Simulated assay, not measured.
Amino acid sequence: MTPSRSAAPAGRRSAAGNPGVRKAGKSDKPAGKSDRPVKHNGNGAAAGAAAPERDSDAAEQTMLLVGARIRAMRLRQQLTLRDVAERTGVSVSMLSMLERGVSTASVGTLVAVASALGVHMYDLFAHKDGADGSPVTRLSEQTVVRMGEGTTRRVAHNDAAAGLELAINQYDIGGASGPSATHHDGREFGVLISGQLTVELDGQSHVLEPGDVIAYSSDRPHRIANTGDEPAVAVWVNLDDN
């Protein structure tokens, strides 16, 4: 049967034709109130519009502290910005902005700068101490940093005595270790867990699929980018020369 043209659109008839149904008005509830429970994140902050603002403020504060640490380490070693730039491939202007906390650095930039100062990226951030003498580093004790260029780095383990840093890196679609290649001391090893990554090494591209492993000297200019169509996760190890 052909439906009548005069039929009311679905969803309107019950409200308009039934006097028992009252439309919600401005007087029903104070403005801004909702029946939905307020969700909170792990820090107890309310989720919603306020959460991104709070996260953004926390990220800015973190970068201010990181920048101050980098500057203090550099001055203690009597290094100029140009000295660090030559060791890393990061421009003097970017290093200056990083020290002043006005730039969200990429993973590659911070790894390179930390290496130039004789430390790991882990040492640039405040982090929780694990249980004394325990061989286990709990997930809650690991340092997680959301970086620029669409990357998140979780430092799962740091062994200063062995000169080793073990991290789990996640790259958003189109994310990368940095806008350009960097270099620093040491060696690094990576295994791709999921997604796809392209490692640019000395200007040559190496595409990694899940299970593939790459190893190279960190003094070769390198950049890591997610060239796939889904987020990528990789385990990365940075090892000092000594």
Rank of each mutant, 00 (worst) to 15 (best):
I224A: 08
L95I: 10
D28T: 13
P3T: 15
H40W: 12
S134M: 12
V191S: 00
A68I: 14
R87Y: 15
H157A: 14
G108S: 11
A114M: 08
V38Q: 11
A225Q: 09
G11D: 02
S56K: 03
E230A: 10
V111I: 02
V136W: 00
Y171I: 00
V199Q: 03
V119I: 11
E149S: 09
S180Q: 13
E60G: 03
P221H: 11
A8Q: 07
N158C: 14
I70N: 01
T137V: 15
Q142S: 10
R87M: 03
S56V: 02
E86Y: 06
G118T: 00
A232E: 04
G44R: 02
E99D: 04
A181Q: 08
Q61C: 08
V21I: 14
R13D: 10
T152A: 02
K128P: 15
E149R: 07
T137N: 12
L117C: 00
S134A: 15
L192V: 01
E141C: 14
R138K: 05
V113E: 02
L239G: 07
L98P: 00
G186V: 11
D132M: 13
D132L: 14
I70M: 13
A7M: 13
A167R: 02
D229K: 06
N41Q: 06
D241I: 11
Y171Q: 04
A68K: 10
A131Y: 03
M63E: 00
S218C: 10
A234D: 03
K33L: 13
R153N: 06
V213W: 03
Q77A: 15
A8S: 05
G175N: 04
E53W: 15
G32S: 09
R100C: 07
G178Y: 00
G174P: 02
Q77C: 06
M121T: 05
L64D: 12
R12C: 13
P210D: 07
A31R: 08
D35R: 01
E149Q: 14
F125P: 05
N238C: 08
P37D: 06
R71Y: 08
G133E: 10
V207T: 01
L201W: 00
P221R: 03
R153Q: 04
L201K: 03
G228Q: 06
E209P: 06
R36F: 13
W236L: 05
G228E: 00
S134L: 11
G25P: 03
M94T: 14
A10C: 10
R154T: 12
A85S: 15
P135A: 13
L192T: 02
V38R: 12
D229R: 02
M1Q: 10
R36W: 13
H222L: 07
D241M: 09
R138I: 04
A225Y: 09
D159I: 10
G89Y: 07
N158L: 15
H184Q: 00
D219H: 13
L81F: 12
K26H: 11
D185Q: 11
